[in-house]
């Protein structure tokens, strides 16, 4: 979102001379934690966390780095889950091909929705993506292959490349972890490429980017398709984790959830959406057994975040003295 928010403190903080090493060590600790986590925590829960983390990171590619608020990302996430589930279950495709179909399907959806939505900016863009994804929801409700309210159930996980049996929970976990890391690497590479820089310039000042000769709508569409495809990757994997695909994943509530994850963790940071997803998923897990509706908490957290906590957790950390000492930079 473009910049009229509070300015970042400008007083100089000397970056620690070994900040690079510190950040590398931090990364190593996280990697080790992810590798060992299934020994201590319920693997399905961890896989859900990774899938939603990737989904939120893909969404953030659009909101955080291009400044476009999509209110319809559930269409790509849930759509891909349907495509993957259908290909694997009905056509008997291997899991990698099923996920690839999910990614391509989501990208195609993104191309169509994006081409329509980028004709308006700002708030209209959000409303249009919401309306288009609701249209897709009704399509899924009525189309034959989605099985309406029942969804596609008992999807087999199959054997990855014909070698690894994914019905084994641990094998599945490491597969999901690999996809997650791959997805984040793609996003990181994308954001730090010349293409990503141009996207940031569009976010900061669209008019100036146009005057510099960039075809802004083409770049926006590119980012939209990229974000949709990665959301599709997360959705396809999610269908294999839970072995079903349902209407929940294409509903507008899901689009709202991914916004909350990103906002809570920190818009425009790589790690923020993942952390936000972790928090939201944990909260849902915790409340799943009580009859207290999650939406009340979700709604209140939303309001609090928007009112007083717009940088999100990771954003606040990056902007703090400690964060800047280690060499992180907070974006506005």
């Amino acid at each position: 979102m473009s910049g009229k928010s509070e300015p970042i403190a400008t007083e100089q903080i000397a970056v620690h001379p070994r900040s690079g090493w510190i950040r590398l060590a931090l990364l190593a600790v996280i990697a080790a934690a992810l590798l060992l986590a299934p020994q201590f925590l319920y693997p399905i829960f961890l896989m859900k966390l990774l899938a939603f983390g990737l989904f939120a990171a893909a969404f953030n590619l659009l909101l955080g780095y291009t400044g476009l608020l999509s209110f319809g990302h559930a269409a790509f996430f849930g759509g891909a889950a349907y495509f993957t589930a259908h290909a694997v279950k009905v056509w008997g495709w291997p899991p990698e091909a099923g996920i690839l179909l999910g990614v391509l399907g989501a990208a195609a959806l993104g191309l169509v929705m994006g081409a329509i939505a980028i004709r308006r900016q700002g708030i209209y863009f959000a409303m249009i993506t919401l309306a288009l994804s609701q249209m897709f929801f009704f399509f899924c409700l009525q189309a034959g292959f989605t099985h309406g309210e029942d969804g596609i159930q008992s999807v087999p996980r199959g054997r990855l490349f014909g070698l690894f049996d994914l019905s084994d929970t641990m094998t599945m976990y490491y597969f999901v972890l690999a996809v997650f890391i791959l997805g984040l690497l793609i996003i990181w590479r994308f954001v730090n490429s010349p293409f990503g820089m141009i996207l940031k310039s569009i976010r900061e000042n669209e008019q100036r980017a146009i005057s510099l000769g960039y075809s802004v709508s083409r770049y926006k569409l590119g980012a939209f398709v990229m974000s949709a495809a990665l959301a599709g990757l997360a959705g396809g994997v999610k269908a294999l984790i839970f072995q079903f695909a349902t209407l929940t994943d294409v509903s507008w509530q899901m689009s709202g959830e991914v916004i909350l994850m990103t906002l809570l963790g920190g818009i425009g940071t790589l790690a923020g959406p993942v952390v936000g997803a972790g928090l939201v998923v944990t909260l849902q897990n915790y409340l799943a057994t009580s009859d207290f509706p999650v939406t009340i908490i979700t709604g209140v957290v939303f309001m609090v975040c928007v009112l007083v906590f717009r940088r999100g957790l990771i954003g606040e950390f990056f902007a703090s003295k400690l964060g800047r000492k280690i060499g992180f930079r907070a974006e506005n």
Binding site: G3, G122, I123, I259, T298, G299, M303
Partner: peptide
Amino acid sequence: LDHLYGLLFTFGLALA
């Protein structure tokens, strides 16, 4: 702030 924050705030309000 950016107008999108108003949308997000009222979205949270609606959920609550």
